[in-house]
Design a binder for these strands. Sequence first.
DNA 1: GCCGTTTTCGGCCCGACTGTTTTCAGTCG
Length: 597
Amino acid sequence: MRMHKAMTNLEIAELLRAVAAAYQLQSESKNRFRIIAYQRAADSVEHSSSELKDLWDEGKLNEIAGIGPSISKHLDELFKKGSSSHFSQVMKGLPPQMFELMIIPGIGAKTAYKLVTEFGSKISEKNPIGDLEELAKEGKISTIENFGQESEKDILRSIAEVKGRSKRHLLPYADRIADEVIEWLKKENEVLKADPLGSLRRCASTVGDVDIAVATKNPQKVLNHFTKFPKAQRILEKGGATSSIVVPSDMQVDLMVQPQDRYGALLQHFTGSKHHNIALREFALKKNYSLSEYGIRKRGAKGLKKFATEESFYNFLGLDWIPPELREDTGEIKAALNHQLPKLVEVREIKADLQIHSSFDVETSHDLGESSMEEIVNKANSMGYEYVAFTEHNPSHSRHSEGQIVDILRRKKEAIAKLNESIKGVKSIKGAKRVYNSLEIDILPSGKLPVTEKGLETLDFALVSIHSSFRLSKSQMTKRVISGLMHPKVKIFAHPTARKLTQREGIDLDWEKIFDFCIKHDIWVEINCDPMRLDLPDFLVKEAVGLGIKLTLGTDSHHVDHMDNMEFGVSVARRGWAEKKDIINTRSLEEFEKMIK
DNA sequence: GCCGTTTTCGGCCCGACTGTTTTCAGTCG
């Protein structure tokens, strides 16, 4: 039998969306909710933290919300045979081009189908979007029934948008822009309150648009002031309650304005996430309430209950206020109902930075830090830390003999001993009482570590991580990592997925096995605070926390300024429901010292 | 087609915008 390459979650989600689109073309009204069911299943599959194929192997498909007996049956066939007769049947006769056209904003199933059937082979399978663009430019679209000049222009605009679709932005850039906009807004006296919204407020690892809420009695004046933001390159729209501008890096900034007595509902609605809001409205519906960005309405009754704060909004529904980082529909509503929300870890509780690269020359083949050990200790002092760990990359084993590597590591050990000597007993100095001698060691593709026993002996503890051969199979990669974690000096598995946001996907690992090993051998898992990594990712943090795995925060700083990125790592921890107890570097120096021995 | 601390049957999130329309369908966030 021919082996099919297992479909990824994203591919399965696309397939389910295609099935939903196919049902949309059938006009029977009973399909209405079936369409929604398929779209929901697609969303859930896309956001699932485990590969669907693995769940299927274990007979756990039903654990995915939105997958019931019927879809489950079709997926079973899909995994067994490589296709599903039911899905094929539903999509029979539909032109494949239409699914690609649906990428274009404003074009849904019906519009896509109509366009493809109308123009036939003029919209090719090879380049449907390009062909549609040509047709629009030639003015052919506006000749079709129910399409006019405006829809033609819309299609051209949207295609241009898809082509130049700017990537999502890293969290710190969005954060900085939002700060600047809010600072600018507050220069206008009519601005009573201003806060970021959306994925930025939820501290997602990447952000599309920046959305900002303002409470005011004078919307027009605020919106006018907003469009004069000095860095605004373009004004996209300016309405009565919203306005949009574009700032450098092609970032869109939207402003939403409401009177102060409705500000709570506004914040709640536009903070999202979409899935959280849907779940919340379904919850409210059972109590016969209908929610919107304006407030809460009793179903069938007139009048709107307004909310000045989000706390009062959630409390009205019988829920505790839910921190924005948790609003992803992963159980937070139930927890809020039962008063069982976690007490999330906070930046001020962090007492150490457990991944820093100094400029001490360990003659590594990777990048060295730019700041001296002394500069870093001073910075740690100013941040109120009690300890730090120096974790330069291991010395290059291709350029040095084993003996030379040990010599280098001994020199580093001496330097750190001296540094500790110079600050030991100075009780009046807050922070950085202890400097730990560590090393970030590559896990080679073989699973071996490129530092010998004698070299490892010089360390207080070691971090290990992946920096090469990212595309090994899941089983090989899992074996490699576990082998790398074996040595007793190894305490921390650093940037575990090795992903680079907007650049590179993470490696393929059997997380159940990895986490299991970490629990049994008391290995800690890092949340790397580098904004381009934010690794362990939030959904895996949540799994790890659920299993009782201990996490560490490390900024991976290569310059003292990078040490300020700690807050972004804390955001990831919070998104993963982590409390103070789950994070190793909330421990005092005394506690940490005991744990490391 | 899914789902259940009011339901295993009878429900299923909300509002806005847009264009092509004389009352609405399609799409989006």
